Computed example of a mutant assay.
Amino acid sequence: MKFTAAQFVDHSVPLTGLVELPNGPSLPFCREDYRVRPEIRDQYLSRLIEMRDVDAQPLTEEQRHNALSLDDVYVPVGQVAFQYQDYLLVARKIPPGDMPQSRVPFNMELISVKHFPGMFPLSLIAVLLLVLLIYILGRMVTVRIGHWIVHKFESLIISRLPVVRTVYGSVKQVTDFLFSENQIEVRKVVAFEYPRKGIWTLGFVTGESMIDIAVAAGEPCVSILVPTSPMPMTGYAMSVPKSEVVDLDLSVDQAFQYIVSCGVLVPPQQQSTIERLQARLKPEQASDSFEEISSS
């Protein structure tokens, strides 16, 4: 951030055109190592001559200070010079051994001290500029020229890097899936026995499974997303034979409510009662179920 600001805000002046000041006063942090403009030098020497004529005594350090305006003093830093007041701000903050010796580093420190006395404003501006840059790049990518630039970059540069192209391709597929507007298409809510026979698990059919899996199973299979409770944002992708899948009379929203509540919120049409069991089970199954319910 400071480096970027130093490219646009430059407080330095060219060292050419500045001259040394004969018999000048010693200044804090730079002593006699400073420069002035030729006209300032001439004015300063004229004031010294006037003071000598008046007092007829050697001039004191205080008198020489009074004859010079610090606003007209410049301190050399590399090939340029900075006004003494600005040099003083940086010199008071940085130890003498760490003082920058060129224009850009000194300008960076001067900007941070003079315009951003605390780190918070500088950090805030850096974050805002970063967000603005990301927004502009995003807008460029969404238009036709942005797509063309990205495509050329991928085909001419990324595709020629052996390791990078593999990693980039995989990451791009994941990010395109996560951040695209296309959502997972849930076709229906089903149940199947998992992780073993007799234990039923709820899942969402997302599509047809892979052909190699169907060949190995000897029948068509479906891809099922099994979300976890109570956080359905994660889960498992499974391939299950169609003959082992039971379609449920549930909407996707009702299924999510059931999963998030860990099975507490059962939709009204799926609530199990004796009358409903008797109506839907076969006679022999219904009698066995009623005996189990009564015995429990």
Rank of each mutant, 00 (worst) to 15 (best):
T234H: 10
G24E: 08
S69M: 04
F3M: 02
Q270R: 07
N107M: 07
V19H: 11
F120G: 05
S12A: 03
D53W: 03
V73L: 08
S239D: 06
T166R: 12
R280T: 12
G169K: 00
F8Q: 03
Y44H: 01
E244W: 00
F120Q: 13
V77Y: 04
F116T: 02
N23G: 14
L133G: 01
G118I: 01
S289M: 07
V174Q: 09
L129W: 09
D253W: 12
P162Y: 06
L88W: 08
V205T: 12
N107L: 01
T166G: 08
H115C: 07
M231A: 09
I199E: 04
F256G: 02
G146Y: 03
L132V: 11
Q43P: 10
D72Q: 08
T142P: 07
R103D: 15
V164L: 15
Y168W: 14
F177L: 12
S12W: 00
R103Y: 05
R41K: 14
V77N: 10
S69T: 06
L15A: 09
F106Y: 08
I125F: 11
G263P: 13
K172V: 03
D53Q: 11
R31Y: 00
P100S: 11
L137F: 04
M231Q: 08
M140Q: 08
Y135K: 09
L45M: 12
E62S: 07
H151E: 14
C30I: 01
S289L: 08
I111R: 13
L161G: 11
I145D: 14
T16S: 13
M140A: 08
E32F: 01
F290G: 00
Y194F: 15
V205L: 09
R103L: 13
L202V: 15
V240S: 02
P230W: 04
I199G: 03
K152E: 15
D86C: 12
L202T: 08
P14Y: 01
E181G: 14
L68V: 13
V215H: 13
Y194G: 10
R144Q: 15
V77C: 01
